[in-house]
Every structure is written in structure tokens, then in C-alpha cells.
Simulated scan of single mutants.
Amino acid sequence: MPKSALSPPQAITLSADARLHLGFIDPNGSLGRAFGSVGLVIDGHGTRITARRAQRKGRIDGTSTQAQHERIEAYLARLHEALGVTQPVDIEVHETPRAHTGLGSGTQLALALGTAFARVTGHDLTTTDIARLLGRGARSGIGIHGFDHGGLIVDGGRSTAHSENATLPPLLARQRFPDAWRVLLIDDASREGLHGEAEKRGLASLAPFPAALAAHLSHLVLMRLLPAVAECDFEPFADAICDMQQTIGEYFAPAQGGVFASPAVAHALQAVAAEQKAGIGQTSWGPVGFAFVASAQQAERALATAQRAAPHASLSFSIVAARNHGATWRAACPRESGANAA
């Protein structure tokens, strides 16, 4: 990988926000391209890390779980080897969302870490380079394109004819999401979405996705969802989200136990939709569910409704807007006298 001609900073802090995966278009690849995704980068539930060139053995601080610590160790080892970097790099984790909830935390952590590592070691890597190196984007390109661009993203899936040389799903559309619209998010801390081997088994257990449904979803995305966002027309957008989520949710229901992974989240979202216009669904395998509404005032109303309908201790609620730009970074303070500095 080429090295940057500019002098690299000694330390940088990089921030990347979460994404909602709003649905696949054709999981079966009936026309030769598998999956295809629609997603949105949101302004919240972010990942923020600092990378610093170190003098001694690199440290990893601030991880929330042992699994996260081990994942960062593995990413660092891969980066050091691939880029031929011998100088140690310290990583400090400031915040990350809860893993396996449908917010794309694994991809954002990998891309944030890889980007920060490349910058402090003077290497010129694209986000695609980093994703390939760290094994991200196996099915969806939403998290990767969202890291670069933000906004509403549609990707074109992967070619089934050249799976041995799989490339990142191409970016087909990127639209600025209306600033006024809001999203109510509901997480169920008692559950995790499918991941790892369980996810692979779940996908393998599903029947082929009917070509007629893929055609319906393609039509829905191209002629309803994208035009509604372009024209800031909330009602057809909400209808398109509900239609897409119901269609894809019914397909994945045998693997996750229902259209929603969490019955409590489903109950809360259905209560919101019964009271006001909303686009409801689940991001990826969940358990995080969402309700799109037309304004901040409507979001507060939706929040109150959801909390009354499902007062479960395991549920947490937040209101977010879209993020219409990609990840950001800034120079950070070098570590001084062994202390953590951000």
C-alpha cells in the first residue's frame, strides 16, 4: 500500500456513526447479484477511537468487552503485517454501540480502526482497501459506503458469477436525508441479533427468495422510496419502509423467530404506527427496531407512546436524525507520561 507524502499526525481521534440496515433487495441473487441493500447513516450510537504512535508495545484501552479487545488485537495484527508497520500503535476506545444489535458496530469499529491506523502510520488506504483487508462487507456495502458518504445509501449487491473475486457492493444511489425527519430507536438489552456461525446457519436454512418479491422490492426502492426522500415527501417514504420491512421480515422470520427479533420491540413499534404515521421496522437482525417520523415533535410523541405500550426494563429508547456526511477525524494529543489523552 502506498505511503502518504504528507507527514502523518502522531495521534488522531476518529468518529463514525451507526447505520440502519433497512432491507435487502434480492437475497437470492435471482438476476446474478445477491442481496443489494438499502440503509441510512444516523447521527448517534457512534464509534469513537483514538490511535497514537507508541514508543513501546502498543496498548488497547477502553474496550467494553473481552471480545471487542480480542477483535481489535486481531485487526491490529493484520494491519501491521499487511502494511509492514513495525512501530507499535496505541488504541483508545472512547465509545461504541452495543454489539450485535443491528447498528453495524463491527464494520464501523473495523473501518474507524483501519483508517486511524493508516493515517498515523502514513499510509494512503481507501475505505474499500480497509474493508477488504479486515474482512468487512461480506453481504452489504451500506456500512462501508455510509462511512465515506453518510445519508441514504443503496448498493448493488455482489455478483454471484464472480464470487471468488468478490468486490465491495457498488454504490448505486446516495441521497441526502431530510433534516427534519427523525427516527425513534428501540433496543432490547435481553437479546442479540444473529451473528457469526448462527447467522450463517440461519441464512442457509432459508428457502430461495422469490424473484417476484425481489422485483417488488426493486420497484419499491426505485419508484417510491428514493423519490420520496428526494422530494421530502414523508408519507410515501413511510409506506415504502413498512412495505419493504414486512416483505423482508417475513422472509427472515423462520431464522429469527418472527418478523421482529424482539416481541417487546415489535409491540412498542406497532403501538406507534397505530397512533401516527410512521415507517416501522427492524435494522438487520435486530433487536433494534425503528420508527421513522416526520419531525422532532412527532418523535417525542412516538417515544411517549412506545414507553407506555412496552414498559419493559430491558428496553431502551433514543431519538436520532440522519447523518448526511461520512466519518470525521481530528488530530489528537500524543500520550504524555503514560497517561491517556484524547
Rank of each mutant, 00 (worst) to 15 (best):
A180L: 14
I91W: 01
A331C: 08
A253N: 06
G196K: 06
G157T: 01
A304D: 11
I144V: 10
P263W: 04
A271V: 07
H219T: 12
R53G: 00
E199D: 05
D148K: 01
F177R: 14
A51C: 02
R33P: 04
Q108R: 09
A161H: 09
I248F: 05
A264I: 07
E235L: 15
S284N: 11
G286P: 10
A212Y: 12
C242H: 06
G106I: 03
G36A: 14
E231K: 12
F234I: 03
G326D: 04
G193V: 12
G202W: 01
A339F: 09
A266Q: 11
G196I: 05
A204G: 05
R182T: 15
T128F: 10
A16P: 00
A118L: 03
A306C: 10
A278D: 09
P169K: 10
A211M: 10
H149Q: 01
D188A: 15
H45P: 02
G196M: 07
G39Q: 09
G141V: 07
R132A: 08
T50M: 00
E336Q: 13
L171I: 06
F317P: 10
A273R: 06
W181I: 10
N28C: 15
D188W: 09
I42G: 01
Q270I: 05
D179R: 15
L315V: 09
R191Y: 14
V288F: 08
V288Y: 07
G36M: 10
G202Y: 00
E73T: 05
G58H: 01
V93F: 03
H69W: 10
A214G: 15
A110G: 15
V120C: 02
I241Y: 01
L303M: 10
S316H: 14
R59E: 03
L103M: 13
A82R: 07
R119F: 02
L76N: 01
R323Q: 08
D179N: 15
A306F: 04
I144S: 03
D129W: 02
N165M: 12
G249R: 05
R59V: 02
T127K: 02
I130W: 00
Q270P: 02
E300R: 11
G135R: 15
A296V: 06
S15A: 03
R158P: 00
P208W: 06
T167M: 15
L184I: 11
G62M: 02
A189C: 11
P178D: 15
V320E: 09
I153G: 00
Q298I: 04
F237M: 07
I186M: 13
A332N: 00
T328E: 05
Q175M: 12
R98A: 15
Q307K: 14
T65G: 09
V85M: 03
V154T: 03
G326H: 05
S163A: 11
T96C: 07
T13H: 00
G258T: 12
A131S: 10
Q10D: 00
Q282Y: 14
T63M: 05
R323I: 01
L226A: 13
R119Y: 03
H45M: 12
E73R: 13
A341C: 09
S4Y: 00
G157Y: 01
M244H: 12
L152V: 11
